Simulated scan of single mutants.
Amino acid sequence: MSIKITDECINCGACELECPNHAIYEGGKKWRISDGTSKKITKCKNPIKKDIYFIVSEKCTECVGFYEEPQCVIICPVNCCIVDDNHLESKEDLLKKKKFLHDGIPIKF
């Protein structure tokens, strides 16, 4: 699964700093797979949302391989980081994504 940020976001930015995959971006910002990962893919992609923070599902692993719980969900003061039912993935798939993004970075549990 991936986490998404709902329209209730207050743009505090707390979630962005907590994401080990650098999958969270400020509204209106372009993003890249290479941001915060070991990938060399530097092509910029357009923002997913303009007015509030957003989570890139291609980079979100729900913190699997880093923490026991998604850090954005824990830190959000208004509980607007929720499971994105449109991007459901198994724990195994999330671990594969984590390994893809971070090539050889050890998994912490």
Rank of each mutant, 00 (worst) to 15 (best):
M1A: 12
S2Y: 01
K4N: 08
T6D: 08
E8Q: 14
E8V: 13
I10G: 00
N11I: 04
N11M: 06
C12A: 09
C12Q: 06
C12N: 06
G13H: 01
A14M: 11
A14C: 11
C15K: 04
C15L: 05
C15Y: 06
E16V: 10
E16F: 04
E16T: 10
L17S: 15
L17K: 12
C19W: 03
C19A: 03
C19V: 04
C19T: 00
P20N: 10
N21K: 02
N21P: 01
N21D: 14
H22K: 13
H22L: 07
H22N: 13
A23Q: 05
A23G: 07
A23M: 07
I24N: 06
I24D: 05
Y25L: 11
E26R: 15
G28T: 05
K29G: 00
K30C: 12
K30H: 11
W31E: 09
W31C: 05
R32Y: 08
I33M: 15
S34N: 06
D35K: 04
G36E: 06
T37Q: 05
K39H: 10
K39T: 09
K40R: 12
K40Y: 04
K40P: 00
K40E: 12
K40L: 12
T42A: 06
T42F: 14
K43N: 11
K43W: 01
C44S: 14
N46G: 07
P47N: 08
P47E: 05
I48V: 09
I48E: 05
I48H: 01
K49C: 05
K50T: 10
K50F: 11
K50M: 15
D51N: 14
V56W: 03
V56I: 13
V56N: 08
V56A: 07
S57L: 04
E58V: 08
K59A: 02
T61A: 00
E62T: 07
E62Q: 13
E68Y: 09
E69V: 11
E69R: 13
Q71A: 15
Q71G: 10
Q71P: 00
C72K: 06
C72R: 08
I74Q: 13
I75T: 14
C76D: 05
C76K: 04
P77T: 10
P77Q: 12
C80G: 02
C80Y: 07
C81D: 08
I82M: 11
I82D: 09
V83S: 10
L88P: 07
S90M: 02
S90N: 03
S90G: 04
K91Y: 00
E92I: 08
D93A: 14
D93Q: 15
L94N: 00
K96C: 03
K96E: 11
K96G: 04
K98G: 01
K99P: 00
F100N: 02
D103S: 14
D103E: 15
G104V: 11
I105P: 00
P106A: 08
I107Y: 05
K108N: 13
F109A: 07
